[in-house]
Simulated assay, not measured.
Amino acid sequence: MAMEIIPSTSTLSPYQEVRRFIKNESNASLIAGGVAGAVSRTVVSPFERAKILLQVQGPGSNHAYNGMFATIFKMYKDEGWRGLFRGNLLNCVRIVPYSAVQFAVFEKCKELLLARRNAAGTQLNAYERLLAGSMGGVISVAVTYPLDLVRARITIQTASLKKLDKGKLTKPPTVFGTISHVYTHEGGFTALYKGIVPTTLGVAPYVAINFALYEKLREYMENSPDDYSNPVWKLSAGAFSSFVGGVLIYPLDVLRKRYQVASMAQGELGFQYKSVPHALVSMFKNEGFFGAYRGLTANLYKIVPSMAVSWLVYDTIKDTIHKW
């Protein structure tokens, strides 16, 4: 019996090898997700830092930051234009794998859920999309959490809570210096994952709501007789889905940031939590409803345009790769 000779992939040119690698569905999702994350976070970097500064002001702090635009102006006044983008390089280093893993896991989970139903070509229901989004959120947090913790620490340490008499910042902390300090003085390797539980509890439902709602809106636009080909519609869908998810889970986002910085300056920041339930009860009891939503406006200024840009860049790159 004659054997079929399969051409060796080694005969492919370097260009063809790269093209085949990129067009692989999982790789395409990783690439598109990583680029989308970096672009979107750079656009909203000042809002990201302002949000963290507003969030970590506990009931015992002096509330040096009030209001999103006032906080951005104070950052610029105290630290110059570099203060607006302080930590953005680290944020991009974190967000590229974070966003890449998030999108790739989401797409892979959708593929597996469809295969499980043996119904390729059909659409997932809302619960399946929420599950896929949750898995994307959980795994992306697990992969990149230490960088998220370090970014929050650097944001606080370079802000006006740590200034000299003449208004000049002390020497800005480095990424490796911060990691070393946390590892050496706060409990070793596990200290790098301090706050991962409230972070996961906040990120997983946010990603689930955001991704599921956006996909539903995109499905409607693609199947509608009206023309939704203008990129503005995708921007609008991404903005709306992130707005809904951001408002619903915001107290958990406040909580995760406070967990990450609680051991830095307990006397100044004014909070110390024993557990996630204790922290939530304490926030609402001691600071009221608005205390649990402190920094929400700054957060929405950050996540709404960020996810709008992220979804647009992601879909555009994926479409470009598929047509290549």
Score class of each variant (00 low, 15 high):
Met1Val: 11
Met1Ile: 08
Glu4Thr: 12
Ile5Glu: 13
Thr11Met: 08
Gln16Phe: 05
Glu17Phe: 02
Arg19Cys: 12
Ser26Val: 08
Ser26Asn: 11
Asn27Tyr: 01
Asn27Val: 11
Ala38Met: 03
Val39Glu: 01
Val39Trp: 00
Val44Asp: 07
Lys51Cys: 12
Leu53Met: 09
Leu54Glu: 15
Gln55Val: 09
Asn66Gly: 09
Ile72Tyr: 03
Gly80Asn: 07
Gly83Asn: 05
Arg86Thr: 05
Leu89Val: 04
Asn91Thr: 00
Cys92Lys: 00
Arg94Tyr: 00
Tyr98Gly: 03
Ser99Met: 02
Gln102Ile: 02
Ala104Gly: 07
Phe106Ile: 10
Glu111Arg: 09
Ala115Pro: 03
Arg117Gly: 11
Ala120Trp: 03
Thr122Val: 08
Arg129Asp: 14
Ala132Asp: 08
Gly137Ser: 08
Val138Pro: 02
Val138Phe: 05
Ser140Cys: 06
Ala142Met: 06
Ala142Ile: 03
Tyr145Trp: 03
Asp148Phe: 00
Ala152Asp: 04
Arg153Lys: 06
Gln157Tyr: 04
Gly167Thr: 04
Lys171Asp: 10
Pro173Met: 05
Thr174Tyr: 00
Ile179Cys: 04
Leu192Phe: 01
Pro198His: 07
Thr199Val: 02
Pro205Met: 11
Ile209Thr: 15
Glu215Asn: 14
Leu217Ala: 14
Leu217Gly: 10
Asn223Lys: 10
Asn223Pro: 01
Pro225Gly: 13
Tyr228Phe: 15
Val232Asn: 11
Lys234Ala: 11
Gly238Cys: 06
Pro251Met: 09
Leu252Cys: 11
Val261Met: 08
Val261Gly: 11
Gly270Asn: 06
Tyr273Arg: 10
Lys274Ser: 12
Ser275Glu: 05
Val281Cys: 07
Met283His: 07
Lys285Ser: 14
Lys285His: 11
Phe289Lys: 05
Ala298Phe: 03
Asn299Met: 04
Leu300Cys: 13
Lys302Ser: 15
Pro305Asp: 10
Trp311Arg: 08
Val313Ala: 11
Val313Glu: 06
Thr316Gly: 06
